Computed example of a mutant assay.
Amino acid sequence: MTKEKILDATLHLIKSEGIDSVTIRKIASEAGTNVALINYYFGSKEKLMHEAMKMILETFRSAFDIFDALEYQPIERLKQFILTYTSFLKDYPDLLKRILGHDPLFESVAEYVHFMKQQGFEKLSEVMTEVTGVTDRKTVLLMTQHMFAAIMSPFTKVNPVTKCQPNNCIQSSLLDIPISIEESIDLFFEHYFHKYSVEI
């Protein structure tokens, strides 16, 4: 039970404070235990974080299961995947940057990137072809990239820079539009896929 409490505490801190803010003392306090016991069960903070990240990324990977639910129309499978995936990103927003950056600190991120390359994008490509009828692989991959960039851009916002030289600043966002994830996805699907005459 103590090991599970430590993992649960780590997951909670990653979700509430972000990966970089998690310390072994915070984990011990959240779990109601001590640093020595954490090291006893996991060996080090790095190994504990690896286990926690692996659990989180398994949840991300489960979003792809919808593509095997052939009783649903392709457009519905695609929409449900995006809804599920973005809900996970909403809980762990800084994790997307780790995935995109192939963060070498976590072996589990490398494993997930490998899954995406070998299976994830393949499943996405297949359903995109079902939805659009486009079979050219390069075109399908570009369309998939467009979809991810458009829908997931709010999760990749950069924190405002407090000190910078003129004309060398990074803004967190050009526009902050009050719109739900569901509305954003519906709007994107309506405009992006309308030419394929698919009932959305």
Rank of each mutant, 00 (worst) to 15 (best):
4 E>L: 06
4 E>G: 00
6 I>M: 06
8 D>P: 00
10 T>K: 03
11 L>H: 02
11 L>R: 03
21 S>T: 06
21 S>K: 15
23 T>M: 07
26 K>H: 07
26 K>W: 04
27 I>L: 09
30 E>H: 04
36 A>G: 12
37 L>P: 00
42 F>M: 01
45 K>Q: 08
48 L>A: 03
48 L>Q: 04
54 K>G: 07
56 I>R: 10
57 L>M: 12
57 L>C: 12
57 L>H: 13
59 T>S: 09
59 T>C: 04
61 R>W: 02
63 A>C: 15
66 I>Y: 00
66 I>G: 00
67 F>A: 01
69 A>N: 15
72 Y>M: 08
72 Y>I: 10
73 Q>N: 11
75 I>Y: 01
75 I>F: 00
76 E>S: 11
76 E>I: 14
76 E>M: 07
83 L>N: 13
83 L>M: 13
83 L>C: 07
84 T>E: 04
86 T>A: 10
89 L>R: 01
92 Y>T: 02
99 I>K: 07
102 H>V: 09
103 D>A: 02
103 D>F: 07
104 P>K: 11
106 F>C: 03
108 S>G: 11
109 V>P: 01
117 K>F: 07
118 Q>G: 08
119 Q>I: 02
124 L>M: 15
124 L>G: 15
126 E>Y: 15
127 V>T: 14
130 E>P: 07
134 V>C: 11
134 V>L: 15
137 R>F: 06
137 R>T: 02
137 R>P: 01
141 L>S: 14
141 L>H: 15
143 M>T: 03
143 M>Q: 11
146 H>I: 12
148 F>T: 10
152 M>N: 00
152 M>H: 03
153 S>R: 12
153 S>E: 13
154 P>G: 08
154 P>R: 10
155 F>I: 00
157 K>W: 00
158 V>D: 08
160 P>D: 14
161 V>G: 06
161 V>F: 06
167 N>F: 15
169 C>N: 05
171 Q>P: 03
174 L>T: 00
179 I>P: 04
181 I>G: 08
181 I>V: 09
183 E>N: 12
183 E>P: 03
184 S>E: 04
184 S>F: 01
184 S>I: 01
186 D>S: 04
187 L>Q: 05
189 F>S: 11
194 H>E: 11
198 V>Y: 13
200 I>G: 12
